[in-house]
């Protein structure tokens, strides 16, 4: 009798209140997403087909110019250079940050004592605002009064005009970005490592696995989700690199450090050419989506 009643309960259709309840709970999130994400995205998409200038079109409608902004964008050699720089920068930065961050995380995780102190100290660069980081490094790498060049001179090494030389500017900005963001990777991977059971390592050791084999067959499979998430977040963030480039090099010398955001700021936002800037923003969003597609596809599945 009791079983029959349960069966009836399991098979009956949920009533209206039960169906509406989950949707109601989702409503605030949906509203927030619509207002803060969907609307700006649609707005940007729409304006990317217009000649919208913030000042000129303050009181009159912008003209619909179809694909002109996109044609101009892809026809511009400096935009193509900015795209190449951004992709190159993102790949190099993410790879180095992941490798160094993972190495530090594994090392700190293996420490018997002093983990908390090391963890706190390592996090410091990430806690600083990008603007502060850029200004501090600019002072340290100044070709006149910078401590780095002074140290090089003392050691008899050649000195450089770090941010104004085409040979060094890109690498210097890359190095600063890696320095600041390695702690983020470290923190995420360190958290993942904490969840790996010690018994798995014990079992591996009993089976005769060495340090490298333990790392490859135990550590990596256990933290692969953390690695993927970390790579995705770093890719998205690095792709939007702006403050450091804007403060340190302004995209120069000769466009060697120009990124997509820097280009859009210079040629779109700074000139109030929001239509053109919107086209660039759409292109950039699509590129980030493509780069992140592997992870997103996996998450959906």
């Amino acid at each position: 009798m009791k079983q029959a009643a349960l069966k009836v309960n399991r098979t009956r259709e949920p009533h209206l209140g039960e169906r509406a309840f989950p949707r109601l709970m989702l409503a605030p999130t949906l509203i927030v997403m619509l207002v803060l994400t969907a609307y700006p995205l649609l707005f940007t998409f729409f304006y990317s087909f217009t000649d919208y200038h913030y000042l000129k079109h303050a009181h009159k409608a912008a003209d619909f110019i179809q694909l002109e902004n996109y044609i101009e964008l892809f026809g511009n050699g400096y935009f193509r250079q900015a795209v190449m720089n951004t992709v190159k920068f993102t790949l190099l930065a993410v790879v180095f940050e992941m490798v160094i961050g993972l190495f530090i995380a594994v090392f700190i995780n293996s420490l018997k004592r002093g983990q908390k102190v090391m963890r706190t100290l390592l996090l410091l660069p990430y806690l600083l605002p990008a603007v502060t980081v850029a200004l501090s490094w600019r002072m340290m790498l100044s070709s006149n009064y910078g401590i780095v060049n002074q140290l090089f001179e003392t050691l008899g090494l050649p000195v450089f005009n770090w941010f104004m030389d085409t040979k060094t500017a890109f690498g210097t900005v890359l190095l600063i970005d890696i320095w600041q963001n390695v702690p983020f990777v470290f923190l995420l991977l360190y958290a993942s490592l904490q969840s790996v059971s010690e018994s798995q390592y014990e079992a591996a050791r009993i089976d005769g696995a060495g340090v490298i084999q333990q790392f490859w067959y135990v550590t990596i499979p256990n933290i692969k989700n953390g690695l993927a998430l970390c790579a995705l977040l770093r890719t998205i963030d690095t792709f939007r690199l702006f403050e450091k480039v804007n403060i340190l090099t302004g995209g120069g010398p000769a466009g060697t450090t120009s990124t997509i955001t820097q280009y859009l700021y210079n040629y779109g936002i700074r000139n109030m050419e929001f239509g053109f800037g919107s086209a660039g923003a759409i292109v950039m969003t699509l590129m980030v989506l493509i780069l992140s597609s592997v992870y997103i596809k996996r998450a959906i599945q």
């Binding site: 100044s142 006149n144 009064y145």
Partner: peptide, 12 residues
């Protein structure tokens, strides 16, 4: 000479 930003020009 060289190319520099404003602060470095003054300092140099």
């Amino acid at each position: 000479g060289d190319t520099m930003d404003k602060d470095d020009i003054v300092a140099a």
